[in-house]
Every structure is written in structure tokens, then in C-alpha cells.
């Protein structure tokens, strides 16, 4: 039996269903964390504790596992995300320039979300589209063969005029 989450938030129901599918096995921790992040966007302490309780795991183990893996995030992401590929092929083809351009344009550092919550600039180890290097994933859509101008063109509008 699950301890239903007191908030009554429907997403917890979906999370419960997912944990149930794995029969509340502690082994399923990473699967459950993926699901929780899908549902809630990020993993906050309350959520981690809820998962720990239901999988009957020590909280420190859940926290330790969640922070080991870089795909899990603990703060909300921006409205838009730009994921820059920093793999070898993209590196050789000038990914650093793309990074510098956006950091300057948006006044934030790689890995951060701007304080107005409009956008996040993230880095990936390699998105596996090396044939098109350098590559960025803009709101989930892969764009290849970029240069700084082309990239700026693609993210135009993220900054406020609401065209995207």
C-alpha cells in the first residue's frame, strides 16, 4: 500500500502507478526518478522523500543516487531550454563559440537558468548526432551544422517578444 501524498496532486497518483508497476522494488529507484522528473520537471526534497518512503529506502541513498546522475535536476528549468552538445565532434567544430555566444547574449553560465525563468542553457556530453556537428537541442528539437549567427536566429524570440 502506498502512503498517498497529502497534497492530493494528481501527478503523485501517476507516480504511484509507476512505482506499483515495479512492485515498489528498491532496484527500480532510477526508473522511478526518471518518471518523477518527467511528471514534475525536477526533483525537490519533498518528492525525493516521498520516493524513499514508498520504495522503503534510506533517504540518503535516494539523494546519493539522484545526485550521481547528471540527467536529474533539482531546480526548475526555464520556459525554454537550449542544450548544447559538448561532445568531441562538436568541440572540434566550434561548440565553444556557440556556448560563448549564448552565455553573452543571455548573461548566464552553462548549466544555469536565467533568473526570470525564461531560459536554461545546458550542456550535454554528446547527443549522438556528430555527423551534423556542431549541434544544439532547442526545446527538444535537434538542430545541426550551427554557427553563432544561425543559433541566435533560432533562439530569437525566447527573450520576451513571445513569438515561440
Amino acid at each position: 500500500m502506498t502512503d498517498a501524498h497529502p497534497s492530493g496532486d494528481k501527478r503523485f497518483k501517476l507516480l504511484d502507478a509507476s512505482m506499483k508497476r515495479y512492485q515498489f522494488q528498491p532496484d527500480a529507484l532510477i526508473e522511478v526518478l526518471h518518471k518523477a522528473q518527467d511528471l514534475f520537471g525536477h526533483l525537490d526534497h519533498d518528492l525525493l522523500l516521498y520516493i524513499a518512503r514508498n520504495l522503503k529506502l534510506p533517504p540518503s541513498r535516494v539523494y546519493g543516487v539522484a545526485t550521481f546522475y547528471h540527467l536529474f535536476s533539482f531546480t526548475p528549468k526555464g520556459e525554454h531550454t537550449c542544450l548544447l552538445c559538448l561532445g568531441t565532434a562538436c568541440y572540434v567544430k566550434g561548440a565553444a563559440k556557440l556556448q560563448a555566444t549564448l552565455e553573452k547574449q543571455w548573461d548566464l553560465k552553462l548549466g544555469d537558468t536565467r533568473s526570470d525563468g525564461k531560459m536554461s542553457l545546458l550542456g550535454a556530453r554528446c547527443v549522438g548526432a556528430c555527423g551534423l556537428a556542431p549541434v544544439a537541442v532547442l526545446d527538444g528539437k535537434v538542430s545541426g551544422n550551427l554557427n553563432p549567427e544561425a543559433l541566435l536566429q533560432l533562439v530569437k524570440g525566447w527573450d520576451g517578444d513571445g513569438t515561440r
Binding site: 534510506p58 540518503s60 539523494y63 546519493g64 545526485t67 550521481f68
Partner: peptide
């Protein structure tokens, strides 16, 4: 048997 400690990050 308490498992209070663990390691975070990497």
C-alpha cells in the same frame, strides 16, 4: 543498520 550516511554528487 541506520544508513544515515551516503555519498552525494560524484
Amino acid at each position: 543498520g541506520a544508513h544515515t550516511w551516503d555519498v552525494s554528487g560524484r
